[in-house]
Design a protein around this nucleic acid. Structure first.
Lengths: 254, 254
DNA sequence: TTAAATTTGTGCGTATGTATG
DNA sequence: ACATACATACGCACAAATTTA
């Protein structure tokens, strides 16, 4: 094993851990940098020679790490041009049946939904959209959606309380609103309205999305209703604008 | 029931109507004041304590009303700073028939469209959307839309050249794309696709919209097709996000 | 249009460590 | 102990693609 002359490396990962191959450690570090947003999507990495030198390995070794990340979908390599952090542009279709998982399935991606917090609160600002009396109760969930390990969405969703009081658990279990609603008897639901705006995120929001505060987010405020037209969910989702764009097309005739 | 000591209020709504929550009645009155221009856009409201006293309610009740208006986009609240009337909120509906003028007519506003520049260029980046060969020609118009004297939108639109080569003049004359197209034989057209994203504007764009560079804009890339499904226009519109929000609802069944 | 510079892709040879039989 | 096979790693050289001047 070579002497470590690369002790100043900023990553917490040890590039010279003997239990894994060096190219694997390098891949892990580059992957962590990408997922944490330390290198921006679309950004070009230093060339292979420079990267190999920085990690203190031969260019072949570095290339193995890069190839692994290409296979994982994190990097794009163009001969003669450079190595780029792959842009993650999800086309999020706003239509009657708006589902995160369906939107991603179309692109061959898989989504994860993480429950950050839940609480029971007075309907307050959500009462109108849910057609509830102002002092009814709602369950409010904060969730974060990730694709390919990248945080892409941050949602605050409110559900009417007597009917869907127990939604937090199934959401946490399935990582899916659709499946959680199905478990509580809402077999199907449709998007009745979406309102799109944009603004700069707060510090907390930027942190939660692993994005800089200077990058604007898309804000989608929405209402979902069941087959009978009764509101079952309202809320707003913040989308990282470098990862998601919204697509609006006329619904296919059913 | 409290005696109404606020009889001078111009609103027709009774703040003490028992059929709705008090905060809803207060929200309705504030909304009416804003829509009627009795409080100017950008103006700061009295602080919450003063407002609560004026309506004869607890500050918590008043805050519910304010929150509702924030959610509707009529107010902006900045902690430690005050509550402000939002500059202008246009609900711009994205649907099959997407027309600037129709969108504004719904809100009682009237739009103006200003032709900033026009040129004949190779189809290039617009070729795909217009289904043209790459070296066909297109007419590219830069236009600016204003409402109530406020600049709200900045568009770059491309039209296929043999068919719509002379579109610049009627656009300048009518201040309307719809009427210009009609004059050239395109009696009707529909929006086949809209893609929504956001970013910070360039200096030139910010200047053209009379907005600071720090305020993000909504970017809508679109394709319009005639009744036969042939593309007649593609382009992108930048909306000042403090003035416009996009609304997506299922099209009414025709 | 051409040419130079930059960057990734590929091939060869060599060497080391590990698992297998 | 030895031979074999495989994965890993280093060094050099040149080919191919792309960008830039």
């Amino acid at each position: 094993m070579l002497k470590d002359d690369n002790a100043a490396a900023p990553s917490p990962l040890d590039v010279n851990d003997a239990t894994v191959a060096r190219w694997q450690a390098i891949a892990a570090q580059l992957r962590a940098d990408i997922l944490a947003g330390r290198v921006a999507p679309g950004e070009r990495l230093p060339n292979e020679t420079a990267l190999a030198e920085r990690f203190g390995v031969n260019r072949h070794t570095l290339r193995q790490a890069v190839q692994a990340l290409v296979r994982e979908g994190h990097l794009n390599v163009r001969q003669g041009c450079g190595t780029f952090v792959r842009e993650l542009v999800l086309d999020y279709a706003l239509r009657r049946r708006t589902r995160l998982s369906e939107n991603l399935a179309r692109t061959g991606e898989t989504a994860g939904r993480e429950l950050l917090s839940h609480a029971v609160l007075p309907a307050g600002e959500w009462a109108d959209a849910l057609k509830l009396p102002a002092r009814a109760k709602v369950v409010v969930l904060e969730t974060r959606s990730s694709v390919r390990g990248r945080r892409v969405g941050l949602s605050t969703a409110a559900f009417p309380c007597p009917r869907l009081a127990d939604i937090a658990a199934p959401v946490a279990r399935h990582g899916s609103i659709t499946r959680a609603l199905a478990e509580l008897g809402v077999a199907d639901y449709t998007r009745s309205r979406s309102v799109v705006s944009t603004r700069l995120p707060t510090q907390a929001e930027a942190d939660a999305l692993a994005r800089p505060m200077s990058q604007p987010v898309l804000v989608v405020q929405y209402v979902n209703v069941d087959r009978a037209g009764v509101p079952v969910e309202t809320g707003s989702t913040l989308f990282a604008a470098d990862a998601v764009q919204l697509v609006v097309e006329p619904d296919a005739l059913a």
